[in-house]
Structures are given as C-alpha cells and as structure tokens.
Amino acid sequence: MRDTAPPKQLAFDLPLDPRYGAEDFLVSPSNEEAYALIEAWPDWPDTVFLLRGPAGSGKSHLASIWATRAQAWTVSASEVNDTNVAHLISNGALVVEDVDREAGRDEAALFHLLNLARERRFPVLLTASAPVDAFGLRVADLRSRLRLAPGAEIGPPDDALMKAVIVKLFADRQLGIDTSVVDALALRIDRSLARAREVVAELDRDALGRRRRITRPLALAVLDRLGEAGAPEEDTEDDAEA
C-alpha cells in the first residue's frame, strides 16, 4: 500500500543573532543594579568599571548597550597587548570583555591600559564571570586595581526574567506560545539566558521538522533529549498538526 503520509519537513539551521539593543534588554531584580550603572552613564564616579555575572546572565548585552551610547570599541581581554594599547585608547571609550579568562591575557598590557585610562579620564567597562580573586592574576598591581574598581554584579536570572526572555525568544521567531510551555521551560532549563536561546532554537527546529505545533509535551520531550531536568510526559494532546 502506498504511504500517503506527508514528508517530514526539512529544518534548516539558521540561528537568529542575539539582539543586543537597549529595547531588547529585560530588567528584573537580578540585573537592575547593573542596568542602573549603564543608565547612569556618563555620570560615573570613576573611569574604570567592572561588570560581573555568571555566563549567560546578560553582561555582553549590557556592555553592548553602553558601547553604543559611549561610542566605545569592544575587544576581548586576549586582544589587549603592549603593541595596541595606545591605539585602543585613541577612540575615547572601550569595553574589555572576559578579563577573568587567562588564555592569551597580557596582564602588563591590561595594567598599562587601566593606568592610561585613569590618567586621561578614558572610560573602560570590563566584564567578567568570576570574582577578581579568582582571575588567577600574577601582576599584583593589576589585581589591586581591579579589586578597587567600582561596578555592579548581575545575579542568575530569576523566574520572572526567564519567562519574559523565553516569551521574547519565541516572539523573535514569530511564534506564539502557550504559557504552559513557557512555565515548563523556565522551570527546567539552566538559569542562563544563553541556554534559553539554545533551547528555544532547538524546539523551533524540532517542531518545524516534525510539522507539529509547540506544545508542553513536545517541549518536555526536547528537554529530555537535551539532558535537562524533568522527563517527558505522555502527550495527551492532538498536536500532530501539519
């Protein structure tokens, strides 16, 4: 007998770039202190600020918002070296990402950059995931300078923020989603905005490939496959829509 079932739809992996505009940043108790720091620009009491928070908490998003306002260049800490410090401070403002990463980090160059920033009133926003004492710094003067740097810390996303981010991620893909799906995802995935982005993308691909709408049972099945907490529940809904 001829199989008349519709063919499985191909799901092309076309990831959406993260949106780092000010209008895309969602404020919650976990990040409001850091957001207030960025909003206070240019009325900062110092030239060097340290923005700290766990991976996926929104540090790069806030740094991007500030860079746009301050017309700052953005580099990783590993890109700062003794041959380009003068060039980096020539722009007038700078974001240095991931100063806690040891790979490729030139501590002497970073210390020189921060000294010049203070002398010339040149604003520098630093980002890091770990506390200063966990950076593994060998240059004591740099460690001391960073300990004294004012700044703000972002906490892990709270429930309200996770749910709002998940809704927005689906909306960015022009997908309406039931609150039961949002609740299931927010409850089970790692508290990371980056992880929320990955899971929503995977769910979109899975639903498109299966030609099914996104339901709570489907979401739980995808989470189970991705190794997130919680097991898939029996799908009692008729969600095999084309």
Rank of each mutant, 00 (worst) to 15 (best):
S78Q: 14
A103G: 12
P42L: 08
A229Y: 04
L218W: 09
G155P: 15
A134C: 03
L203D: 07
E198I: 15
M162Y: 12
V27A: 09
D17Y: 06
I154D: 07
E119Y: 15
D159P: 11
I38G: 06
S28L: 03
T83K: 15
A22W: 00
E119M: 15
E237V: 12
G136C: 04
G227F: 07
D43A: 14
A196W: 01
R195M: 11
F12R: 07
L125P: 10
A219I: 08
L16M: 03
L218M: 09
A117N: 15
V181C: 08
I189S: 00
G136S: 01
L185Y: 02
S78A: 15
R205E: 12
D158R: 08
E237A: 10
N84H: 09
E79H: 11
A77D: 06
R69S: 11
G227M: 13
A22C: 10
A194G: 12
R225V: 08
A93R: 03
R105I: 02
I189L: 08
N115V: 06
A55D: 15
I65S: 00
R197W: 09
L187W: 05
W44S: 10
W73Q: 15
V222F: 10
L125R: 05
G227D: 05
R69F: 03
V124W: 01
G53Q: 05
D204P: 04
A164G: 05
L125S: 08
S60I: 10
S180K: 07
A231K: 11
L148V: 15
R212P: 10
V200C: 09
D43V: 14
T215R: 04
S78W: 12
L113A: 06
I65L: 00
L208F: 05
L146K: 13
K163I: 03
V222P: 10
L169T: 00
V124G: 02
V124M: 04
L203Q: 08
P7V: 08
H61T: 02
E33S: 15
N31E: 00
R19C: 01
A109L: 04
H61R: 02
P6Y: 08
